[in-house]
């Protein structure tokens, strides 16, 4: 980008046709949405905190990650910064989750 704007400030740029395909939200996406609402409502972070991490993730994330993939990354970062849990706790739990099974249903226990 050459006009000094950050990548997320995309208003007015050229782009292709609007893709009108719609997917229904998966359970894990709804859970990410719910956790964002619950934890921010409880004052653990603000919408500005959510957006700061999303914007700092950079343009590549917008092309390679889905909406709720970016959101879970941002909510997690904000929760770690708020001291709710540590990266070590998260890492250990993610390893344990992976060991439960190969699919979301198996790993989430339902």
């Amino acid at each position: 980008m050459t006009d000094g704007r950050r990548w997320h400030d995309m208003g007015g740029q050229d782009a292709g046709p609007v893709d009108l395909d719609q997917h229904d939200f998966a359970l894990w996406e709804k859970r990410v949405d719910a956790l964002q609402v619950i934890t921010s409502t409880k004052g653990l972070f603000t919408v500005d905190g959510l957006r700061r991490v999303l914007e700092d993730m950079g343009e590549a994330s917008f092309e390679t990650m889905t909406y709720y993939e970016r959101w879970v990354a941002s909510v997690n970062q904000n929760l770690v910064e708020a001291g709710v849990y540590t990266l070590e706790e998260l890492g250990a739990r993610m390893e344990e989750v992976k060991s439960r099974g190969a699919t979301y249903g198996e790993a989430a226990g339902g």
């Binding site: 894990w28 859970r31 990410v32 956790l35 619950i38 934890t39 879970v72 990354a73 909510v75 997690n76 929760l79 709710v84 849990y85 706790e89 998260l90 739990r93 993610m94 344990e96 989750v97 992976k98 979301y104 790993a107 989430a108």
Partner: peptide
């Protein structure tokens, strides 16, 4: 998805 499950359980 793994991160979502871990985050939710920790919360």
């Amino acid at each position: 998805q793994t991160m979502e499950i871990a985050m939710r359980e920790l919360l």
